[in-house]
Design a protein around this nucleic acid. Structure first.
Lengths: 66, 66
DNA sequence: TAGAAATGTCAAGTCTTATTTACATTTTAT
DNA sequence: ATAAAATGTAAATAAGACTTGACATTTCTA
């Protein structure tokens, strides 16, 4: 799964720490998600979509795994 | 978080087992999600949206917790 | 160009989500 | 009414999301 959080965050001039605070996770979690280390939970994805005023599908691009 | 998987599944005349097979999880996982026992992972939510040809936001309704 | 801010990363641990197995109950169809 | 299909539920375990803390590197900015 890919995402464009880094771009959206830059557009809004937010640091990883500020975005983390805004959605209630740690800065390292934002970093890990941006770097594709793991996918967020569904609630966290919803909160990200809320901050960016985007649909989840506009932030995350799902590809079949395997 | 609420969801209308049960309704969407009924509209398409799918059993929990058939839906489970379609997205690659166990039947019990579908049952648990329908009953609100937990939220699916983001990849699982995407697969559900794919089967139902809906956006994630059309299937799941997020409410702040706390 | 030096200090501060931001980012990258790693390890260890916690908590939540997902799976399996197994069995009970309910619904559907004959 | 009976058999078969579907659903409900629960315990044990595995897998993944997330935290904290620590330290290194990169990028801003005064």
């Amino acid at each position: 799964m890919k995402n464009n959080i880094r771009v959206l965050r830059a557009e809004r001039k937010l640091t990883q720490g500020e975005l983390a605070d805004a959605i209630g996770v740690s800065r390292q979690t934002i970093n890990a998600i941006e770097k594709g280390k793991f996918d967020p939970s569904l609630p966290t994805a919803f909160r990200l979509a809320g901050v960016f005023e985007k649909r989840i599908e506009e932030i995350f691009e799902y590809h079949e795994e395997g």
